[in-house]
Amino acid sequence: MNNTIKNYSIFIILLAGLVIAIIMAVGFGAVRIPAAEFIDILFRGIQTEHSTILLQIRLPRVLLCLVIGAGLAAVGTVMQGIFKNPLVDSYTLGMSSGAALGAVISIVTGISFSIGGVSTTGVFAFIGAVSTLFLVYNLAKRKNAMSVNSLLLAGVAVSYFLSAIISFLMLLNQDNLQHIVFWTMGSLSLTSWSKVVISYIIIIPGILALLFYARELNILTMGDESAQYLGIDVEKLKRVLLVICCIIVGAVVSVSGTIGFLGLVAPHIIRLIAGSDNKKVIPYSALLGAVLLIASDTVGRTIIQPVEIPVGVMTSIMGGPFFIFLLRKQR
């Protein structure tokens, strides 16, 4: 019973945190919008001088932050579960860089088509994420055995390599520089409602699908072999989960560029307070990821106005030291 109460309180605190973060994020900026006015505009439909800023700029941005943060955190949780290591996430395995490279290639080549309403950039980002993951996984794998160290090393190496290619492409395409920088640093400044809608359509079902496999993910912590003994088709499970992760990461990167360390930090904090059960860690991490990303973005765009710090820079500034802390603690 005690556990149930604890669970509910964690959930309620996270939800309250999310609401507060949204209100703050909408309110703060070049123009301050008080909470009362926010409610007037949103719920009573009253037009004020800030209506456009709120409805066309800040609200979509905050909502996008929410779903991206949640998506990255859920993906981080699941990838840590798959690879049984708390240092793994979409960023450390180079998936984000791969997705960014995919996006950059679509920009510089100018290829443009649309598959089922998903933008070219999104498709390229997804392909980039999948192929990078595939590459890193196979680089790290040796004779059916894979050590997590080699996985991280391969991830870092591939990440560097891909970043170098992105830089090279930037050098050759000075015209698109601004656009490319956006992908590499991770930014939410070019938000539109259509991006918000597409992200929700892809990411929310993605998170729910991951949640669907929470029990299997728990068992995976016993080790791949033991998980098989307990009745799980481990290779199939990993493939399914990694594809879902790639779709989410592709969707995230195609609207926001690469945002680092969020997927690493959020699940870790949740595990410290709520334990390791993925039935809780996935949804709670998603909530925390949303809160953290909204907060980082708000700080990033208000702290040294009028300059806006890209959100990817903000999360890396905060996440980097945390990563080092985890690394040292692991030894």
């Binding site: 840590q80 029990r215 068992i219 912590t221 334990g275 390791s276």
Partner: peptide, 18 residues
């Protein structure tokens, strides 16, 4: 057996019901 992420003994045993 060592677990990378820690679980309570009860949870570990219940995994046997999977």
């Amino acid at each position: 057996t060592a677990l990378e992420f820690d679980y309570k003994v009860m949870d570990v045993v219940l995994m046997g019901r999977y």
